[in-house]
């Protein structure tokens, strides 16, 4: 029902804003994370601005890069995360964005603007933030779980689900060793390998797409997953009438990865003006709430947060409480990316 309410309010908003001159229908080609932008939002934007919006999806930053690099793809708007933005800026693959065309930029929580990967917001605008934390089924796991090392204990052998993401895994090992998660050198990687060699054999399932499934199904008792997935589990806990679920989402005390999914315009985009218009549209408080309803990651839109229901704001997976140690990823060299991949492949391939 949420969606329908949104459509009503959004269409009211669409009527209020003067329609774009309908002389020639422009197209906006969006290449975005899997269903990250709800269809209703896209439809409303298309209608209000008389634009044809085409959407293609990808499931990881690296997939996006692969398709961009293979060529023949002319997109106007992409949705990279922080470390990819840093890399694309360095390689000159992004157009600059004119914030003057995006008045709604002011709605963003200052925490999520002028971040290290794009200090002046010249190339990107934060879309949603998120983090990687621990989700525990308290019905099955009685001990308190606070750190990565708490998760990877022998007694949880083959009861653990983790993200299938090599760089994440290495960053957990580094954090538990007290090394910064961006401090990826040959020596540190060697140390991380020693830790992961003990951890990885305990894992039952690697899943980046839907790790919540194994937790809710009872195949795994604890896991390290995206906070949006954790938030969905917490929502399900409240909703499910038939059975009692008891999950909790915690951020490891050693520190965790915070990712910043952003909107950016790739070089060679044909329709930068419309892309900017879309960015502005998506920063509307109401629109951002519609996105949060489907994807309960950390809403970066301060004005949008004001519209959330109290129980949504109380979801500690979406909105971390206190002041946890969260770091963004820095760009790494291709050699290091290759080295990380080799470490994890070797360990899995025993």
């Amino acid at each position: 029902m949420n969606r329908r309410q949104f459509i009503l309010t959004a269409s009211a908003a669409a009527l209020a804003t003067p329609a774009f001159a309908a002389a020639k229908k422009e197209t906006l080609n969006i290449f975005c994370w899997s269903e990250y932008i709800p269809q209703s939002v896209i439809d409303q934007f298309a209608k209000a601005n008389n634009v044809k919006v085409n959407v293609e999806n990808y499931a990881s930053n690296e997939e996006m890069m692969a398709k961009l690099q293979a060529g023949s793809s002319k997109y106007d708007l992409i949705q990279p995360s922080e470390y990819i933005i840093e890399e694309m800026v360095k390689d000159g693959k992004l157009e600059t964005i004119d914030l003057a065309n995006i008045p709604n930029f002011k709605n963003l929580d200052p925490k999520f603007t002028k971040m290290p990967h794009d200090p002046e917001n010249k190339y990107s605008v934060t879309w949603m933030a998120g983090n990687v934390g621990i989700c525990v089924n308290k019905a099955k796991v009685k001990d308190p779980i606070k750190t990565y090392a708490d998760v990877f204990q022998d007694k949880f052998k083959k009861r653990i689900v983790v993200l299938d993401d090599n760089r994440e895994m290495v960053s957990w090992a580094l954090a538990s060793l007290g090394i910064g998660i961006n401090d990826i050198t040959k020596e540190n990687l060697e140390k991380a390998k020693g830790v992961l060699a003990k951890w990885l054999p305990l894992v039952k399932l690697y899943d980046s797409d839907s790790p919540k499934t194994a937790l809710l199904n009872g195949d795994c008792d604890l896991g390290i997953i995206w906070n949006g997935e954790g938030a969905k589990i917490l929502q399900e806990m409240k909703k499910s009438k038939k059975r009692k679920l008891d999950f909790e989402y915690v951020l490891p005390t050693e520190g965790a990865h915070m990712f910043i999914d952003s909107l950016a315009v790739p070089k060679g985009a044909k329709n930068k003006a419309v892309a900017e218009k879309f960015i502005n549209y998506i920063l509307e408080p109401k629109v951002s709430v519609a996105v949060y309803d489907e994807f309960p990651y950390t809403l970066a839109n301060a004005e949008g947060c004001k519209l959330l229901k109290p129980d949504q704001l109380a979801n500690n997976a979406s909105f971390p409480v206190g002041d946890p140690k969260l770091d963004t990823f820095k760009m790494i060299s291709p050699d290091m990316a290759g080295a990380i991949d080799k470490v994890v492949t070797d360990l899995k391939n025993k």
């Binding site: 899997s34 269903e35 999806n57 489907e294 994807f295």
Partner: peptide, 14 residues
Amino acid sequence: QTLPLKIFARVKKG
């Protein structure tokens, strides 16, 4: 865009 592509895109959402 084919149906499998669209279905795959929805895994994350559930």
